[in-house]
Simulated assay, not measured.
Amino acid sequence: MVDQLIKDLPGDDEVIDPLIGPSAPDAPAIGLGRTPRLARHRIHLDDGHEVGITLAGKGIPLVVIHGFTAEGFLYAQTLSRLCGMGFRVIAIDIAGHGGTAGLPEDGLNIGAYSALVGRVLDKLGVRHCLLAGHSMGGRLVTQLAANQPDRVLGVVLVDAIVGDTWDRMVYLFRVWPPLLGAVGIMLLVDSMLIPPLTRNPTQAMKLLRLSTPTMAGHLIRPWRLLGPMASILRTRSSRYALDAAADAGTPFYILHGDRDIAVPHRTSEDAARRVGADLITVEKAGHSWLLTDPETLPAIIAELLQGKLGDDLRAAFVALGVGEDPDLTAIESVCYDPGAAVFDLALPEEVEYAGASVARSEPAFRWHRDDQTG
């Protein structure tokens, strides 16, 4: 299945090195002509903690963690394209966001937020997975990879708050907390500039429809955001988690917009050097570029599947004993527990879904790969 997944992607006859995209001006969009259904569920952990998740698709578990002030379903358009690429997408609302209850005061650190994600995966029966995190979500998945490396097939970081530059920023936040508030305002401004009103009004309206419930929830319960902000201030430097994950052999794939003013591009340069990964720079992109254009991230993942990501997944499945090209049954046998609860989360018609169809289009952004390992 892994080889077939890669063969089905456009441009398989030539692997671009260095990675420059889109690989061809007329390359078709990645994914299906009809949007796979995305179901929203609320589950309860053994201690009663309520957690919101969004999921769809079949295949390799791709666990997606959103950024600060967002929630998993806000990424629905991008997620629907990813789950059409051989992944079972599982987007988890972090504590205090979306459908997930907040953490107690003694749990206000990144480790506790990350541990909650791990408990959700235990509940769902996910044994091995590819992790992806945007912004604060990138910090959480890095911590999870450091704490549970045997569970992780790889880590995709998107404009993540990791790296030496970000750690130095956190030191300043601790000295003068209003600076963290200023970063929050930058994120808000970035979010307000997300909708592509002039370039693609239809996309802007879709994103507005998705984001309205999220913003309304923050207006009704703004205190829920205090916990995540406090966790950023109270957590030790990200370099420890990066080093631990890298030492365990976890592969990283790092992406960052070159016009991100809230989380500077240099943060990912630092992180890429520390873990020995290449950095994919998304050109003319702000912090939330993957919301601006739902085609770009899937297109980048598609090109990575033709190269390092595909090689790493094949090597992982060989190590797990199912060969480099396992079928769906073999993938499920090693990536999920027998009778995993995630298989019981069906998609009945009454569940809220993303849009019924998707227009295939080119990615709005270009990107290139920078070698940070030298």
Rank of each mutant, 00 (worst) to 15 (best):
D327T: 13
R366T: 15
H256A: 14
S23E: 11
E14W: 12
D344M: 09
G102F: 06
Q372Y: 03
D247G: 10
A146H: 03
L313C: 07
R266F: 02
A241C: 10
H41Q: 14
T202E: 12
A132K: 00
T202L: 08
G99A: 05
P195F: 01
L108H: 14
R221N: 14
H44W: 04
L144R: 01
H218K: 14
I92M: 04
A204G: 07
S333R: 00
R360S: 15
T281E: 09
H41R: 15
I110D: 00
A27P: 08
C335E: 00
P222L: 06
E14T: 15
P222N: 10
V158F: 02
I161W: 00
V263I: 15
A29E: 13
A277R: 01
G33F: 04
A95H: 06
A76R: 10
G107P: 08
V183R: 08
T329L: 08
P363D: 02
E352D: 11
G138N: 00
W223H: 14
E269N: 06
G99N: 03
G374E: 11
F365M: 02
S237Y: 08
D46R: 07
V117F: 01
G57A: 05
M192C: 10
D47I: 12
G217C: 09
T292K: 00
A319Q: 14
D17T: 15
P177D: 10
G321W: 09
A115H: 12
Q306S: 07
A29K: 04
I161N: 02
L320K: 07
D371K: 07
K308N: 12
T78W: 00
V275Q: 01
P228N: 05
L103E: 05
S238F: 12
V342M: 01
